[in-house]
Amino acid sequence: MKALSIISGSSHPQLADKICSKLGTEKCKVVLNKFRNSETNIEICDSVRDMDVYIIQTSSNIVNDNFMELAILIHACKMASAQKVQKINVVTQGHIDDPWNRLNGVPLSEYQKEMLANLQYSKESYKLWASRSGKLVANILSVAGADHLITLDLHEPQFQGFFDIPVDNLHSHNLVCLCIKENIENYGESVIVSPDAGGTKRASIISAKLGIEFAMIHREKKANILIGDVAQRECILIDDLADSSNTIVMASYLLKEKGASKIYAVITHGIFSGDALQRIAASPLDVVYVSDSIPQDVHMQQCPKIKRFEVAQLFAEAIRRNHNGESVSMLFDDQ
C-alpha cells in the first residue's frame, strides 16, 4: 500500500495536528514563508515520492494568500513525484445574507462580491461582465495537480460541478447532533429551528436524527414569519455558515419575541467577519456552538458566547477510508 503524507498549510495548523493525532501519523515537514516582496515561498523538506498526499487548508482569514499557498503546495508535491495529491478544503464559500449577493441566481464568491462592489451598477440591472470565479478556482486547483477534493458542508452543493476531479462533500449532521447531545441538557424538549427556507433540509435532518420538533423562519421583505410553536421552549438554530451573522441574529430576536425561553445556535463554519461577534454578544442568543473547521481561538476570546466543537475525527476517517480504498458512503448518511 502507498504511504500516507499529511501536509498542513498555514491557515489552520491546529486542525492538521488533530487529524494527524487521530490517524496516528506525523505531519510532513514543510517550510512556509514569504520573500521580502510578499511572494509565497514553500519548501517540502520530507520525501513525498509515490505517496498519497493530503493537504489541509481552509479558505478563511487571508483568502487570497491561503489559496495561492495551496496551489503552490499542490504543484510542489506533484513536482516531487507524489502519487496522488488530495486537498482537504474545509470551507470555500462566503455566506450569502443579502439576496443582491447573487448574479443571475448564482451565488457569488468573495472575489465576485468585491468586483461587483467596485462596479457602478444599479439593483435594477446586473452587469454581466463580473468574473465567474468559482469555475476559475476549480480550474486552478486542477491544473496545479490536485487529484481529489474533500470538503465539509459546502454552502452550495452545486459547486461540486465546477470541478473536473472527484469531490467528496462531507456532512456535519452527526457532529451537530453529538454537539447538541453533549452540551444541551434538555435537548429532547427543544425545538430545532431553521433560520431561513434555504436551511430547511439541513435542520429537518437534524430534527429527525434527534427525534425532536422542527420549526422554520420564512423570510420576507416586510416581515419574517415563524412557522411552528416555540413558546416557553428552548430553541436550537441550525446553519452551515455564519459570516456577518445577520441570519442567526435576526432569527434570535424573532424567537425571543415569540416566547422562546433559551436560544442556542449550532454552526458548521464560523467566519464572524466585521462586527458579527459584537452583534451576537448583544443579541438574545445564549450560546453559539461552532466547529473548529476555522480557527476559533480569537473569536472565543472576543465573545464568551462562542463555544467550539471538533471536526478532526470526520476528516481523519475520510482520509483513512480514502487512502485504504474503502467506501466513504457512510460519511454521507443523512438517515
Rank of each mutant, 00 (worst) to 15 (best):
T25G: 06
K29T: 11
K29F: 04
V30L: 07
V30I: 13
V31K: 11
L32Y: 06
L32F: 01
N33W: 09
N33S: 12
K34Q: 08
F35D: 04
F35A: 01
R36D: 14
R36K: 05
N37A: 05
N37V: 02
S38Q: 01
I42T: 09
I44A: 15
D46A: 14
D46C: 12
R49D: 10
M51F: 06
V53P: 10
Q57H: 04
Q57E: 04
S59D: 11
I62Q: 14
M68W: 08
L70G: 03
I74C: 07
H75A: 15
A76V: 14
A76P: 15
A76E: 13
C77I: 11
C77H: 11
M79G: 09
S81E: 14
S81H: 07
A82H: 10
A82I: 11
Q86C: 07
I88Q: 05
V90F: 11
V90D: 03
V91R: 09
Q93Y: 13
Q93D: 02
G94W: 00
H95K: 10
I96W: 01
I96G: 01
D98G: 05
D98C: 08
W100V: 07
R102C: 00
N104H: 08
G105V: 04
V106P: 12
L108C: 08
S109V: 01
Y111R: 03
Q112A: 14
K113E: 02
E114G: 00
M115P: 00
M115Q: 13
N118S: 13
N118Y: 14
Y121E: 15
E124V: 15
E124A: 15
R132K: 05
S133K: 04
S133E: 02
S133Y: 03
G134F: 07
L136P: 01
L136T: 07
I140Y: 04
L141Q: 13
V143E: 11
V143I: 15
V143R: 15
G145S: 10
G145F: 07
A146T: 05
A146L: 04
H148W: 12
I150C: 05
T151H: 08
D153G: 03
L154F: 04
L154N: 07
H155F: 01
P157C: 05
P157F: 10
P157Q: 12
Q158D: 07
Q158C: 02
Q160Y: 02
G161Y: 10
G161W: 10
F163D: 02
D164Y: 02
P166D: 00
N169L: 04
